[in-house]
Amino acid sequence: AFRPAPKPGEGEHPLQYNYAIWFSRRSQGNKSMRYDQNLKFIASFASVEQFWNIHSYIVRPGDMSGHVDYHLFKEGIRPMWEDDANKHGGKWIIRLKKGLASRCWENLILAMLGEQFMVGEEICGAVISIRFQDDILSLWNRSNDQTITSRIRDTLQRVLNLPPNTIMEYKAHTDSLKDNTSF
């Protein structure tokens, strides 16, 4: 059940937006289970301190096994393409060699929470997908505007500190739907 973020307490440092963190694991037996039925709400937060509190008790993505995802989205945006904020947008997809997921995920979400992308209201949320081979980091935004997606890519390259020749790909959600990937 979703719970809205508490108001930042006295002395806490508010964030520009409130965020919610979700978890999903691919169900083994029941393949007909809908994507949203697998989504589990973990917590929402409104301040830097609330974020660290939650971040420190959840398992680091790199320490998880199997087919699992963390989704960190602005409060009010559900982590699925059908949401009004997402349906005309897309995502940067970054494939990570095993062993990099926890560090890259933390770098990405700190840049998002700290408003380092400088693209107005464009950022919707971020996902880390733990898979059997490479792990996948993605950053979702509202529109397909190329100026915006290029600016997001530049910031991603700066904040993630990725190994050279890391593959980055931008994909509109409508294209992911057509070729039946990601959803």
Binding site: H13, Q16, V48, G114, E115
Partner: peptide, 21 residues
């Protein structure tokens, strides 16, 4: 209005605040 911006080092610093425990 003004955006609330934090760089990485500031967020890491606040991780150690007693309020973040």
């Amino acid at each position: 209005g003004t955006r609330i911006v934090y760089d990485r080092s500031r967020l890491m610093q606040l991780r150690n605040s007693p309020l973040a425990k």
